[in-house]
């Protein structure tokens, strides 16, 4: 890994007709770690990844690898490895031929084909037609395609989907290893539990918008304090003076960085009487579900999380 490359998504939006799949999405992915790209099904993960890879045109905004769009990369497959879905194969073609075709197209040495097939554990099955492959084997072949160009950046869409427990353990270790080699690894999933053991940081989106970006540890400690006061402006001022991160959640304020006792003390010193003070003890999964709004009633108004400008 001579140089390292980050992924930068900036104010990205995409509409399909009247449906806005991605709206004003910005985040970045750093090299040397595994980043989870999380959100419920239909949150816009795949659309974002496909825009990043030049397969779908953005309505506005940009998505680049170290400043260059996928189409601008001189040798895209040697820079970015991609596994999108487990079905992009001609069933009548062998795994080996499948990879050889794209190695040829991208001017990648043919010796890489057998190498990556061995790497993902398909070495002995590479001369079989893909039509006879199980879902797990297809996932591995997809991963082999991603590794074909020995890329610095890996973009993997739901790579764990359909793998058996042994395969899941294998891919987790594999992702770790890739990140330790200094590569940038972005892994999407709709299940936090699926990836939380293997990712260092997370980008969480819901309904096409960013709802969290940061370390997984930070997500876990979002045991937030819900607080409110008749004099909300006074409360906000007092909390902000104390350095608290405040968000408006529904009808209350949410404080992520302080405990309930501290919030109460700050309000007391500022002479603000509280109408609500409650600790919301959220585990990782709860924090995730709260962020993506999975608990809001179907068809109902999504819980709006507004960021109060600092």
């Amino acid at each position: 890994m001579a140089t390292q490359t980050s992924i930068n998504v900036s104010h990205l939006s995409k509409s399909f007709g009247s449906v806005e799949a991605v709206s004003d999405l910005s985040f970045s992915v750093q090299p040397g770690q595994v980043t989870g790209f999380l959100g419920p099904n239909g949150a816009g993960k795949t659309t974002t990844l496909r825009i990043l890879l030049g397969l779908v045109a953005a309505s506005s905004g940009s998505a680049t690898f170290g400043g260059q769009t996928y189409r601008e990369l001189p040798r895209p497959l040697a820079m970015v490895g991609t596994a999108l879905e487990a079905s992009s194969f001609h069933p009548g073609r062998t795994a080996r031929d499948h990879l050889a075709i794209y190695a040829t197209a991208a001017a990648i040495d043919r010796t890489r084909v057998d190498l990556v097939l061995d790497q993902v554990g398909l070495g002995g099955l590479s001369r079989r037609r893909v039509g006879g492959y199980s879902l797990g084997m297809r996932q591995r072949l997809g991963l082999a395609f991603a590794l074909l160009g020995d890329p610095r950046v890996l973009v993997l869409d739901e790579p764990i989907n359909g793998l058996d427990p042994e395969g899941i353990r294998w891919i987790r270790a594999f992702l770790r290893q890739l990140a330790e080699e200094g590569r940038t690894v972005l892994v999407s999933s709709h299940l936090l539990s699926e990836v939380h053991q293997s990712v260092d940081s997370a980008v969480i989106i819901s309904r096409g918008r960013l709802v969290y970006e940061g370390s997984l540890a930070g997500l876990e400690s979002t045991a937030r304090v819900l607080v409110d006061a008749p004099d909300r402006a006074g409360l906000v001022a007092a909390l902000r003076a104390a350095g608290a991160a405040i968000e408006q959640v529904g009808a209350a304020l949410s404080v992520a960085s302080l405990g309930a006792a501290e919030v109460g003390a700050i309000a007391h010193r500022a002479g603000v009487s509280l109408s609500l003070l409650n600790t919301e003890q959220a585990g990782l999964e709860d924090a995730f579900l709260a962020l993506v709004g999975a608990e809001s009633p179907p068809g109902g108004v999504p819980a709006t999380t507004e960021r109060i400008p600092a």
Partner: peptide, 22 residues
């Protein structure tokens, strides 16, 4: 049409994003 049917346009355009050339 098999490129559309088997969704092989995805790896094809990943390997070579110059679609006109393909």
């Amino acid at each position: 049409t098999s490129e559309f049917r088997h969704q092989t346009l995805t790896p094809t355009f990943l390997a070579n994003p110059r679609r006109g050339q393909v």
